[in-house]
Simulated scan of single mutants.
Amino acid sequence: MSMEAEAGDAPRHGGSWAPGKVAEMLGVSPVTLRTWNARYGAGPTLRADGRHRRYSDADVRRLRHMQRLIERGMRAREAAAAVFSGAGETTRREAVPGLVAELTRAAGALHFGSLAALLDEALLDMGAAATWTEVLAPILREFGRRWQCGDVCFASEWALTSETSLALERHSVRFADPAPGRVVLLACCPGERHTLPMEVLRAALAERGVPAVFLGPMASPETIAAMASTLDPRPALLWSTSPATVDDPLRQRLAHQGVTVEPAGSGWGHLADRGLTGVDTLTGALDLVAAHQETPRTGNRCTIAPNT
């Protein structure tokens, strides 16, 4: 979030929020927050120093979910029980098929406002990674299947992907300035236009307090090399979904600059015989970034499947 945070308010280690900041984010008084904790067990789960508890990102998402249930007419005690007793997770899993259907209908009808609202709520409730793997990737795979069957659904797919990009941007800026650390650089191979997985990864890193810069599509090799040289990232992920857009000379150029570079995306698979192996899930990519952030490493390994 591009604003200064008061001391003690900024998240640390992937989201560690002071109660006062959480109350501000939810638009409630600190007294209300303490009441929810005392009466319903809707409190923080992290211990910062053995005495003071802090709220995790998941805690905040659950509180937002609780608020929405209250706004829809549910009593506070019932809403807290649904969200914090474990029933909330079951409710979420049960709600996913309905959310998938609603988003598909909204995309088909080109209802951009509905798409925006549904995506904002999903990201708040589930986080970026789960929204991608449980909701968006299945819809995009279904659009792909329909394309193969001759159902031209370009407008629907475009509506969903464009609104998803905007929603991910809105979601990312909800988080305060990231904890100090070397930045992660997310770049696409020149010519690569399928960028959503990288945008999801950036949002998931923002939730965890990891500083990341995403260069977007169509950045030139010179721009990527200059940014990598200036930022000294750990690591730089170079994204490609197809062998046709892979730019291995650019990967080698970054490596020769001393940049820790990881090829990312299924496009790199044809180079596996050269030792470019690695993770193929979003969770694995997050783990890879965490390992780089904690301990400097060398070597080029990482592929992230576009539908994971």
Results as ranks from 00 to 15, higher is better:
Ala5Glu: 14
Ala5Tyr: 15
His13Thr: 00
Gly15Phe: 03
Ser16Lys: 09
Gly20Thr: 07
Ala23Ser: 09
Val28Cys: 00
Ser29Thr: 01
Arg34Pro: 09
Gly43Phe: 13
Pro44His: 02
Thr45Pro: 07
Asp49Phe: 08
Gly50Leu: 11
His52Arg: 15
Ser56Thr: 01
Arg64Tyr: 08
Arg68Ala: 01
Ile70Cys: 03
Glu71Asp: 15
Ala76Met: 12
Ala76Asn: 07
Ala79Gly: 15
Phe84Tyr: 12
Gly88Thr: 03
Glu89Pro: 04
Thr90Tyr: 01
Thr91Tyr: 00
Thr91Pro: 04
Arg93Thr: 12
Glu94Trp: 05
Val100Cys: 08
Val100Ala: 06
Ala106His: 12
Ala106Arg: 14
Ala109Trp: 02
Leu110Pro: 04
Phe112Tyr: 15
Ser114Gln: 15
Ala116Asp: 15
Ala117Lys: 12
Leu118Val: 05
Leu118Pro: 04
Glu121Arg: 15
Leu123Ser: 05
Gly127Cys: 12
Ala128Tyr: 08
Ala130Val: 04
Ala130Lys: 08
Val135Ser: 09
Leu136Thr: 09
Trp147Glu: 04
Gln148Ser: 10
Asp151Lys: 07
Cys153Ser: 13
Glu157Phe: 11
Glu157Gln: 14
Thr164Tyr: 04
Leu166Asn: 14
Leu166Met: 13
His171Arg: 11
Ala179Cys: 11
Val183Asp: 05
Val184Met: 10
Leu186Glu: 02
Leu196Glu: 10
Pro197Leu: 07
Leu201Ile: 02
Ala203Met: 10
Ala203Phe: 01
Ala206Met: 10
Ala206Leu: 06
Arg208Lys: 13
Arg208Met: 06
Val210Trp: 13
Pro211Lys: 03
Leu215Ala: 03
Ala219Ile: 12
Ala226Phe: 03
Thr230Phe: 07
Pro233Asn: 02
Pro233Arg: 06
Trp239Gly: 09
Pro243Ser: 07
Gln252Ile: 00
Leu254Gly: 07
Gln257Ile: 00
Pro263Phe: 06
Gly269Trp: 05
Asp273Arg: 14
Arg274Glu: 14
Thr283Gly: 15
Asp287Leu: 06
Asp287Cys: 07
Leu288Cys: 10
Ala290Phe: 08
Arg297Lys: 11
Thr308Gln: 13
